[in-house]
């Protein structure tokens, strides 16, 4: 017999068989755990890319372009700064949310959006330079890998920016309903995560590539 079946309820009637009304469900918490789970899955996207990167670090084939020629860690600090500041701005937006300050949320989120755009622009500029040097993804396995990792991350940032723009419109139109707040929290998870992933990309691709 199962351990829990100790007839505890036999003498105490009536047993509660059906729960009374559950009250207000935690819709925000429910959404956030789901989105967090999705982020775990997304993290494994990068795990696969890093696994491949570990093998392609010196896979130049017949190309004579080496990692240290195309990767400049100091240059990489600029997008790092933009992205981390953008994340900070989103953080401040969520402090404004806590204080029920709609104008503040819109302002900080706008700043976050702008810095995200700057991040992408710097990346585009950096890679446009690579094309000029002939360091295109078709040149060698290493370059295929380098471009792919950086741009899978960049693609995430791009999606985040579209989401943020839509979010800005929604907040200014609808205010802080439960749905909007839940979505705001999910975007916060997504956006903060891009910073964590960028730490890995910067260290593992930029710094290790240059060392």
């Amino acid at each position: 017999m199962s351990r829990h079946d100790n007839n505890r309820y036999r003498d105490r009637s009536p047993v509660t068989l059906w729960a009374p009304d559950a009250g207000h469900p935690d819709a925000i918490g429910l959404r956030s755990i789901g989105f967090w789970l999705y982020m775990m899955s997304d993290a494994m996207i990068f795990a696969a890319l890093f696994a491949a990167h570990g093998v392609y670090t010196h896979a130049y084939g017949t190309s004579d372009i080496t990692a240290s020629q195309v990767i400049d860690p100091v240059e990489g600090l600029l997008p790092t700064l933009f992205l981390f500041t953008s994340v900070l701005m989103y953080g401040l937006a969520s402090v404004a949310l806590k204080n029920d300050d709609r104008a503040g949320v819109v302002r900080w989120m706008g700043a976050s959006l702008g810095l995200g755009v700057l991040f992408l622009l710097v990346e585009v500029w950096e890679f446009a330079g690579l094309v000029g040097e002939g360091a295109v993804p078709q040149a060698s396995a290493f370059l295929s890998d380098f471009w792919t990792i950086v741009w899978v991350h960049g693609g995430h940032v791009f999606v985040g920016l579209i989401w943020m723009a839509a979010m800005l419109i929604q907040i200014s139109r609808e205010g802080f309903t439960e749905t909007v707040v839940g979505r705001f929290i999910n975007l916060r998870i997504f956006w903060f995560f891009q910073a964590v992933i960028w730490v890995c990309v910067y260290t593992y691709v930029y710094l290790m590539g240059a060392s």
Partner: peptide
């Protein structure tokens, strides 16, 4: 919805600390 713990947990000090630490 603003009383939700995940909204309440926002904190400027910690975000700034994370920023500084990261940079």
């Amino acid at each position: 919805p603003l009383t939700h713990p995940e909204v309440r947990s926002a904190s400027s000090a910690m975000y700034i600390a994370a920023f500084v630490l990261g940079i």
